[in-house]
């Protein structure tokens, strides 16, 4: 554990920011009264970075991810993705942006059970109106080590294999930013390592940006930086931490 104090980041980064959050707040109205999930989060995700977002339950990490990906509208603040302001975009424009610039990997594998592996991976291209080239689809499947499973259906694959298909589906559009929410939450440690290595590869090889929400220090250790959230605010960060260091920082936060 080195530092849990909020760290300032340069306002003008050397690389253009892949994703910029500026003063994000999110308030949910419920019968019991207003609940503040995010209370003013400002952060740059630099291009090619792999950031893990951690925090106790209720710290707002999933809300942060949803706001950053434009799945949910923040109550206040702006999100810039690759220079495009998400606020003020219509549903269709948001969808098109999501389709081109973002990839998603979630705990529940989120594959369409009716489609083969090949068709699942090719689906984002088809939705864009592009006829997927066979070798492209097979190339990303090869990247995740599933080139031989193209004709299977999701139900015939193990959990780890399904998650790799989900990553291949996210890879096919070459998105600028990957959003991952507990991608290894339902997997054993060996399969988890494969998945995390794949995400890491995306940043190292292709310069893609990964934002991953997790509660697992081992998973977070694959990231180049861990961002800690607490009570809807950025509580600090840790660069290149070991699982032990990250776990210690987490238990400090939860105290």
């Amino acid at each position: 554990m080195t530092s849990t104090a909020p760290t300032r980041h340069p306002v003008v980064p050397s690389d253009p920011p892949a994703l910029l959050l500026d003063g994000i707040t999110k308030t949910y109205e419920s019968k019991a009264g207003a609940v503040q999930a995010l209370r003013g989060v400002t952060y740059h995700f630099q291009q090619g970075s792999f950031t893990a977002v951690m925090g106790p339950s209720g710290s707002g990490k999933s809300t942060l991810l949803q706001c950053a990906a434009g799945l949910d509208q923040p109550t206040a603040g702006t999100v810039l993705l690759g220079g495009t302001r998400l606020q003020g975009l219509g549903e269709v424009e948001l969808t098109k942006l999501r389709r081109k610039q973002m990839g998603f990997v979630f705990q529940a594998y989120n594959l369409l059970p009716s489609l083969t592996v090949f068709d699942n991976v090719a689906l984002p291209l088809r939705l864009t109106g592009i006829r997927p080239r066979r070798q492209d689809v097979l190339a990303v499947l090869d990247q995740v080590g599933l080139a031989d499973k193209a004709k299977r259906r999701p139900a015939e694959l193990s959990g780890g294999q399904q998650q790799r298909v989900a990553i291949a589906r996210a890879l096919i559009t070459r998105p600028a930013v990957f959003f991952a929410d507990e991608p290894t939450g339902a997997l054993d440690s060996k399969t988890s390592r494969q998945i995390l290595s794949l995400l890491r590869e995306a940043t190292d090889r292709a310069g893609q940006t990964v934002v991953m929400v997790t509660h697992d220090p081992v998973a977070a250790a694959y990231a180049s930086r861990v961002l800690f959230l607490s009570d809807g605010l950025v509580a600090g960060s840790l660069d290149n931490g070991s699982p032990a260091q990250i776990a210690a920082a987490m238990s400090d936060l939860e105290r």
């Binding site: 549903e91 269709v92 969808t95 098109k96 389709r99 369409l112 984002p124 939705l127 559009t173």
Partner: peptide, 10 residues
Amino acid sequence: LLRLIGATPR
């Protein structure tokens, strides 16, 4: 899910 991976409402 379809909406998430880029299907428009249309």
